[in-house]
C-alpha cells in the first residue's frame, strides 16, 4: 500500500481541502491552517484503523507528525 498516498487522500477528503495545490506532503498541516486539533484526533483514529497500528505518546515525542511525510514515517516504522 502506498502509505503517503493513502494519508494524503484521506486528509484532502476529510478536511475538505480538495485538490488545493498549496497542500504538499511537506506542508505543516496545523500551522498552515489545513487541520485543527480536533482534526489531529481524527487523523490518529484513521491511522490506527487503516494500518492496524497503535500510535503512542512516545512516537509523538520522537516524531513531529506535522506533515503528511512525517505522519507516514511513523506508519512505516510500525507496519
Amino acid at each position: 500500500m502506498d502509505v503517503e498516498k493513502t494519508i494524503e487522500e484521506y486528509i484532502r477528503d476529510a478536511f475538505e481541502i480538495g485538490d488545493d495545490p498549496e497542500l504538499t506532503r511537506d506542508t505543516h498541516l496545523f500551522d498552515e491552517g489545513f487541520v485543527d486539533s480536533l482534526g489531529a484526533l481524527q487523523i490518529v483514529r484513521f491511522l490506527e484503523e487503516t494500518f492496524s497500528i497503535q500510535i503512542t505518546q512516545k512516537d509523538l515525542v520522537l516524531y513531529p507528525m506535522n506533515t503528511i511525510n512525517e505522519i507516514a514515517a511513523v506508519v512505516h516504522e510500525k507496519i
Binding site: S37, A40, L41, I55, T56, L60
Partner: peptide, 15 residues
C-alpha cells in the same frame, strides 16, 4: 510538555 501534544491532545493522558 512538548508542544506537539497540544496538537495531538488525545495523547496527553498517556504522557
Amino acid at each position: 510538555i512538548p508542544e506537539q501534544f497540544f496538537v495531538y491532545q488525545n495523547m496527553l493522558p498517556e504522557f
